[in-house]
Design a protein around this nucleic acid. Structure first.
Lengths: 159, 159
DNA sequence: TATTGTTATACTCTATAACTATA
DNA sequence: TATAGTTATAGAGTATAACAATA
């Protein structure tokens, strides 16, 4: 502690008490930055969804079904949640006319959920509202964004 | 419906730069990569929390109180949720001995929540379990991580 | 017998509104 | 009167277990 002993500890974020044996300060800072981005991204996503009277989960399912109609089971695996949860989420989307359930001719146990035209329009507006794309990334030049893209790709194990 | 110019329903909170809402492919890809990271980060976080029988919200509050004791109100603003929610979350943490409520001598309306020693130990184990720090970032060299750190900083508007 | 989707149940998170005890 | 924390309430997401229809 450099300063006088009276003040409260009040550690600023670059001053970390204990280091995990495995992580150096640089890695820790990157992780913290990513944590901040995660928080901000989520906040913006929920906010954009709420502006369309959707919850985050509803918005995610709607986006998913915009890409492609999907059996209930597949939605669950894609969202990594139990199939029983999907029933309620699709129920709510369906009651608002954003999604519909169709029978699968090949297997009568299966119900395929698909976005309606109105659902696709809502999903489109929602994506446009997500200006996380513009605001923070605008601070970077095109070259820097390219570097960032390549680093993130490698981080995620993509070629 | 693609809106266009007539009576544009006032553009959310910040006015956009001259960028069109339709961003270029490079930016779109970066945003998608960030989305993937957000999903993976969240998944790991919830999983690590669950391994200690904590929900994500409980883990976040516990981590927050590990840094510094905080009045209930401050926890709510930090989590960006209503104060009434904090009551339940701290209740559950307190009933497990991970957190305690202390009176504030200066203002008897205030209750200050603080992590107990056991709470700090749990938070420490939880952080170590979060190997999002190690696994994906290990693919990058130190120099690359430095570049990544600087780009993320600038993205977040930090100097 | 196994699988798909659903229902029933219980828990947590969340926001809103009303209440209490201080200030 | 205003503020800090709580309680009450209702809606939503989540996991588990049990169920009907179908394979």
């Amino acid at each position: 502690m450099a300063s006088s002993s009276t003040g409260s500890p009040d550690r600023s974020r670059t001053d970390r008490p204990t280091h995990s044996p495995r992580t150096d300060p640089l890695t820790l800072e990157v992780v913290e930055l990513i944590g901040t981005i995660v928080a901000r991204y989520h906040e913006e996503y929920e906010q954009a969804a709420a502006q369309h009277s959707l919850t985050g989960a509803q918005a995610r399912v709607l986006r998913l079904l915009t890409l492609q109609p999907l059996p209930m089971r597949r939605i669950a695996t894609s969202l990594r949640c139990e199939p029983s949860n999907v029933t309620g989420i699709v129920d709510r989307l369906e009651s608002r006319g954003l999604v519909e359930r169709r029978p699968d001719p090949a297997d009568r146990r299966v119900k395929v959920a698909a976005a309606t035209e109105e659902g696709r329009a809502t999903a489109r507006r929602l994506r446009d509202a997500l200006d996380f794309a513009n605001e923070p990334l605008a601070a970077l030049s095109e070259e820097e964004r390219t570097v960032l893209r390549d680093l993130l790709r490698r981080m995620l194990g993509e070629p």
